[in-house]
Amino acid sequence: MNALDYFNARLEGTISPMDYQRSKEMDPEKYFLVDVRNGPNHVKNVIIKDAYVIPEQELKNRLSEIPKDKEIIVYCWDVWCNTAAKVAKFLLERDYKVKELTGGISAWKEMNFPVSESIQKDSPIDHCGC
């Protein structure tokens, strides 16, 4: 793969927080944003505003909650976490249209974009699975 092919593929599979915000403002119904982070809720107490919380380790059992008629945007912790990439691959293999939010929740919070408190009940999953 040459550099141009690499960067085209990377841009096809990801969306930056700024691009997501801008695109969501223009077409609010286009996306379905999913927080796929694993781990205990006390470390996941903040989520991106309007995100659905479906941890990667629960995904197979909750797949019916994810619509096929929207572009799915998945995110995890930060650039060092590959959980969102694992979820994106899983969903792409099942014919969903998916992109990974670059930088995860860390980049989102760094940009001071809207967040809300997580209202998820405690999860038995206590490790991130990255």
Rank of each mutant, 00 (worst) to 15 (best):
K24M: 08
A85P: 03
S106V: 13
A51H: 01
N61M: 07
S118Q: 03
Y52C: 02
D19R: 09
K44G: 06
I105V: 09
D27M: 07
G103N: 11
S116F: 00
I119K: 08
E110F: 06
N112E: 15
V79I: 08
N2Y: 08
L11S: 05
I119D: 07
I119Q: 12
R62P: 00
W80H: 14
N61E: 11
Y52E: 10
D27T: 14
A85C: 01
K49T: 03
V87A: 04
Y6C: 07
Y96V: 08
Y96W: 11
L63H: 05
L92D: 06
I47Y: 00
Y20C: 02
K44D: 09
H42K: 10
E12K: 12
K70Y: 03
K24R: 07
K89N: 09
V79S: 04
G129Q: 04
V36E: 05
P40K: 14
A3K: 14
I47P: 00
Y20R: 01
L101V: 11
R10C: 04
I125G: 02
V115K: 00
E12S: 14
F32T: 02
P17S: 07
P114K: 09
I47K: 08
W77K: 01
N61V: 00
S123T: 15
C76L: 05
D69Y: 00
K99A: 07
T83N: 05
M1P: 12
A51K: 03
A88W: 04
D35P: 03
A85K: 04
K44Y: 11
D126W: 10
N38Q: 13
D35Y: 01
D122P: 10
G13Y: 10
K89E: 15
K49R: 13
V87Q: 03
I15M: 11
G39C: 11
L63D: 02
N8A: 04
N112M: 10
V74L: 05
A9T: 12
I125C: 13
C81F: 09
K89M: 11
A88E: 10
M111Q: 14
L91R: 06
D69G: 01
L63P: 04
D50N: 14
E65A: 13
M18L: 09
V98L: 08
K44N: 15
